[in-house]
Amino acid sequence: MNEKELAIREKESSFEIQAADLSKNELPSLEDAQELPIDLCGNYWSPEHAGEFKKMFFAEIKPQKVLSATNPDELIDLDCAFFLERKEDGTVQTITNGSRRLVGILEQYIENGALKRGTPLKITYMGKRKNKTNNFQSDNWSVKPLLINLPVAG
């Protein structure tokens, strides 16, 4: 991916949240402020059982600071997939997953243009699968696009 493509990808993956100018002497009142139905505190999804799934909207892939698996005192950048999930009460929460295999699958489809911000997906955890090249086990996933009724722009 070249710099121009990265800049476009970054622009598409950002959203605007209001911010007040804190250098002014007077802050705007928050008395009548409306709460947006989105929770910015993300939840890391670590499925435990094969067959667990989530239906979510793809948001982006970006690095996140996590503790190293080999050195618990070290913070490393791990590419993570971010999704938006609508909860039963109508609020939206962010869901994160850093499985190398899942992120790798999603990256392929981003690069060929098939996966964009807002794509609805059903992601199912298929359990662990032994790698052919070593004795390690990796997470195995199923990623299926969903067909939904979207409002027609006009």
Rank of each mutant, 00 (worst) to 15 (best):
E5H: 08
V66R: 12
R117G: 12
R129Q: 14
W45V: 02
G154W: 01
E52V: 02
L78G: 00
P145G: 07
D77S: 13
F15R: 08
L115C: 07
L147S: 14
E26W: 09
Q137K: 09
G51T: 08
S68D: 15
V143I: 10
E60H: 06
V66N: 02
A7L: 11
S29E: 01
T70C: 01
N134T: 01
R9Q: 15
I123M: 02
T91L: 04
D89V: 11
V152N: 09
R9Y: 15
L84I: 06
S138D: 15
T96H: 11
E16P: 07
K116S: 13
G127C: 08
T119A: 07
M56H: 03
A153K: 10
C41G: 06
S142W: 06
N131F: 05
Q137F: 11
D139R: 05
T96P: 05
R117E: 08
S68L: 09
K130G: 04
F136E: 15
V152W: 03
P47G: 12
K132T: 15
I8D: 03
V152L: 03
L67P: 06
K54R: 09
A114E: 06
D77C: 06
K132A: 08
L150I: 08
L78R: 05
Q108A: 06
G118I: 03
V152R: 04
C41A: 08
W141M: 04
S14I: 06
Q34R: 15
E88M: 10
K24M: 08
I95L: 03
G42I: 00
E12C: 13
Q34L: 15
M126I: 02
L115G: 06
R100D: 11
D77Q: 14
G113N: 03
T70Y: 06
Q64T: 13
K65Q: 12
I148K: 11
P151W: 08
A81K: 04
C80P: 01
K65S: 13
P47Y: 10
S68W: 09
Q93Y: 11
G104C: 05
E48N: 12
A114T: 10
L115S: 10
D89C: 10
I95H: 02
K128Q: 14
E5S: 00
N131D: 14
L147H: 11
P72F: 00
C41H: 14
M56R: 02
S13N: 15
S99C: 13
N97W: 08
V143W: 01
K24P: 00
Y125N: 09
V66W: 06
E26V: 09
K144G: 02
Q137N: 13
K132L: 13
I95D: 01
N97G: 09
E35F: 12
L78T: 03
S14M: 14
T94A: 03
P120A: 02
G154N: 11
I105C: 00
E60C: 04
W141F: 05
N149W: 04
D73E: 15
L67M: 11
M126F: 02
E107Y: 04
R117I: 10
L6F: 00
G90C: 09
T119W: 00
L146M: 08
L6V: 02
A69C: 06
F82D: 01
A59H: 14
I148M: 09
